[in-house]
C-alpha cells in the first residue's frame, strides 16, 4: 500500500496552478484525506499530482450577510472552529474524526462528492455553489468564456490574464457518486454556503456504524418559520440514499402549521419517495429507506425547534 509513481508539483500561486492543471493530466491534492488513501491502495494512479497546499489566499473563511465563502484550503477543523454557519458546524462534527478534519478541506470534500459525505448535502440543502477556475483557453488573456454554470469574472487572486471562473450551483455540481462538475484542468477555489433565512433552524442527523464513519444514511434539514411560528419552508438533503445528495422540499407536506401539529408521517413519506437507497455490506436498502425517514423527522423537528428558539 504505497502510492504509485507520479510527478509532483507544488505551484506557488494560482496562475501557476491553473497553468499546470491545463497542461498536465493531474490530480489536485488538497487535504489528501480522500486522495491519498486511494493512492495508497493504488485505486488512483494519476501521472501528475498538483499539490495546492502552498497557494496563497485560498484559506479564507469569509462570513458575509448573505452567507459564508470557504476557500479551497480552509480545513474542516478551522471552519468548524470559526463558527460561521450553524449547519456547517452541525455537519462538520459528523465528518470523520478530529484528526482527519485537521487536514481535510471543506472544498475537497465537495469535489470528492462521496454520496455518503455530509458536506455535499449541506451545500445542496442550502442551495450553495462552488467556484471553479481554469486557465483561459490558449493560456492567454482571452475572454472568459463560460462553459455551463454561470460564468463570472470572479475576484480570484492570480492577476491577468484572468482565469476563467464559473460558479456552479449545488444541484448541478454533484453529478454522480464520486463525480462532481469540476473538470480536468479546473480548480475549485471556494464554496459558498448561503446563510439561513431569518427564523430558520437547521439540524443534521445521521447514523454511522462507528462514530466518525461515513453514515449509513443521514439527513440535514433547514426549516423556516413564519411570524406565527408556522412552518413556512422545509427542505432536507439526504446522504447515503442515492448517487448524490437527495434534496427534497417538504414545505408543502408540512402544511404551514406549528411544528407540533405537522403531519410527520406524510412528511416522512415524501422524503422516502424522493430517495433511492441501495443494499451494501453495511445495510439493506429497506433499512436505509426506513432510516432516512426516521432521521428526516428527527432533523426536521430539531431544525423547527431551533427556528422557534431565539439563538
Amino acid at each position: 500500500m504505497k502510492p504509485p509513481p507520479f510527478t509532483y508539483h507544488a505551484p506557488r500561486d494560482l496562475r501557476e496552478a491553473l497553468d499546470l492543471l491545463a497542461e498536465v493530466d493531474g490530480k489536485v491534492l488538497a487535504g489528501g484525506q480522500s486522495l491519498i488513501p486511494l493512492l495508497n491502495m493504488r485505486l488512483a494512479a494519476p501521472a501528475h499530482v498538483v499539490d495546492v497546499n502552498r497557494l496563497p489566499g485560498l484559506s479564507g473563511i469569509e462570513a458575509g450577510p448573505g452567507g459564508v465563502t470557504v476557500g479551497a484550503l480552509a480545513r474542516q477543523a478551522e471552519v468548524a472552529r470559526a463558527g460561521v454557519h450553524p449547519l456547517l458546524g452541525q455537519a462538520l462534527r459528523l465528518v470523520a474524526h478530529p484528526v482527519i478534519r485537521n487536514r481535510g478541506t471543506v472544498v475537497g470534500s465537495l469535489v470528492h462528492a462521496d454520496p455518503a459525505a455530509e458536506l455535499p448535502a449541506v451545500l445542496a440543502v442550502l442551495g450553495g455553489s462552488v467556484r471553479l477556475a481554469r486557465r483561459a483557453p490558449g493560456g492567454s488573456s482571452g475572454p472568459a468564456a463560460g462553459r455551463g454554470g454561470s460564468p463570472s469574472p470572479g475576484a480570484v487572486p492570480g492577476g491577468s490574464p484572468g482565469p476563467v471562473v464559473r460558479e456552479v450551483a449545488a444541484d448541478a455540481f454533484f453529478a454522480g457518486p464520486l463525480e462532481s462538475a469540476a473538470e480536468p484542468g479546473e480548480l475549485a477555489v471556494s464554496a459558498f454556503f448561503p446563510a439561513l433565512p431569518p427564523r430558520s433552524g437547521s439540524a443534521f442527523e445521521e447514523l454511522a456504524r462507528r462514530h466518525g464513519d461515513y453514515a449509513l444514511a443521514g439527513v440535514c434539514a433547514v426549516v423556516t418559520l413564519d411570524e406565527d411560528l408556522h412552518v413556512a419552508a422545509a427542505r432536507v438533503a439526504c446522504v447515503g440514499v442515492g448517487p448524490v445528495p437527495v434534496v427534497a422540499d417538504v414545505s408543502e407536506a408540512c402544511g404551514r402549521r406549528p411544528a407540533a401539529t405537522v403531519p410527520w408521517e406524510a412528511v416522512v413519506a415524501a422524503v422516502r419517495r424522493a430517495v433511492e437507497p441501495e443494499d451494501d455490506i453495511h445495510a439493506s436498502a429497506a433499512y436505509r429507506l426506513h432510516l432516512v425517514g426516521v432521521l428526516a423527522e428527527r432533523a426536521l423537528r430539531e431544525a423547527a425547534a431551533r427556528a422557534a428558539a431565539p439563538p
Binding site: 447514523l207 456504524r209 449509513l216 453495511h282 445495510a283 429497506a286 433499512y287 436505509r288 426506513h290 432510516l291
Partner: peptide, 11 residues
C-alpha cells in the same frame, strides 16, 4: 448483528 439486521428481524 447490525442495526440493519435487527431491523429485518423486527419486520
Amino acid at each position: 448483528i447490525s442495526p440493519s439486521e435487527l431491523f429485518d428481524l423486527r419486520r
